[in-house]
């Protein structure tokens, strides 16, 4: 049964990819997030009247339970990364089975890498072009607007790339339309600068931290998605491709 195989396989891939993502995150990204949070805390401690006018405060989340710093925070990040990786793997394996199973052929290393790059382009690059990865304390448009545009960008670029890869040649140009729709619509933006602190030197520190975060998160996500594509390729060739052959009546 394909469904249960996808679920079990995606959990295993989720554990492996989630472990990789957590290691890269703790080494490269978490120090920047923690550093930005330090300035964010200072900003929220400032007297009234000095607060940012944009949607940047973290106060709404401070009323709820949060993991303690250190091991507990890393453990919850690991759990979240494993769950996210499981979700990504389930989606990729479902699409691989839908589009590659009828071809009854193994997925090559190159094709596996392309699946990974497509995931990176769809779920990281496409939304990041309009809404760059953010560090805590950044001023940005209301969360609901950004989430809606994020979903539009991901869905539209996924359909566009899918058309390019698998549709008939005569409708491939339609794929181009889907690739540009999110940017024609435009991502939600605010008029104020992303960082505004009473002390200009702190603002500069935050701008530098953000620049570092964008570069490192791009590299981390590229490594993560390539690994996910190659893991899914391995699992597909080993546990799924045979299903197409066994269900083929011409072989019986």
């Amino acid at each position: 049964m394909i469904f249960s195989r996808i679920i079990y396989s995606s959990i295993v891939i989720g554990l492996v990819a989630g472990m990789l993502l957590t290691s890269l995150q703790i080494a490269g990204l978490k120090p920047i997030i923690v550093e930005a949070e330090r300035f964010e805390t200072l900003a929220t401690e400032m007297p009234a009247g000095h607060e940012n006018s944009g949607h940047s405060d973290h106060a709404h989340a401070d009323d709820f339970w949060a993991p303690a710093q250190g091991l507990e925070r890393n453990a919850y990040s690991f759990l979240a990364n494993v769950l996210a990786s499981t979700g990504f793997a389930a989606i990729m394996l479902a699409l691989m089975n839908q589009f590659q199973l009828p071809r009854k052929a193994n997925i090559s290393w190159g094709q596996g890498s392309l699946w990974g790059l497509a995931g990176f382009a769809t779920l990281f690059l496409a939304p990041a072009i309009g809404l760059p990865p953010e560090i805590p304390g950044a001023v940005s448009a209301p969360l609901e607007h950004r989430q809606l545009w994020w979903a539009l960008a991901v869905l539209s670029v996924a359909i566009g790339l899918g058309i390019f890869a698998f549709a008939a040649v005569r409708i491939k140009t339609l794929g181009l339309l889907f690739l540009v729709i999110p940017y024609i619509v435009g991502s939600p933006q605010v008029d104020t600068p992303m960082f505004q602190h009473a002390d200009p030197s702190v603002t500069q520190v935050l701008i530098n931290l953000h620049r570092q975060f964008v570069i490192i998160s791009t590299v981390v996500n590229l490594i993560f998605w390539l690994s996910l594509g190659l893991c899914c390729r391995f699992v597909f060739n080993r546990w799924f491709r045979g299903l197409a052959l066994s269900a083929d009546p011409d072989r019986s």
């Binding site: 339970w65 949060a66 990040s77």
Partner: peptide
């Protein structure tokens, strides 16, 4: 709060 760092990354 639990998935904070994963969401940013």
């Amino acid at each position: 709060n639990a998935a904070h760092d994963a969401r940013h990354s």
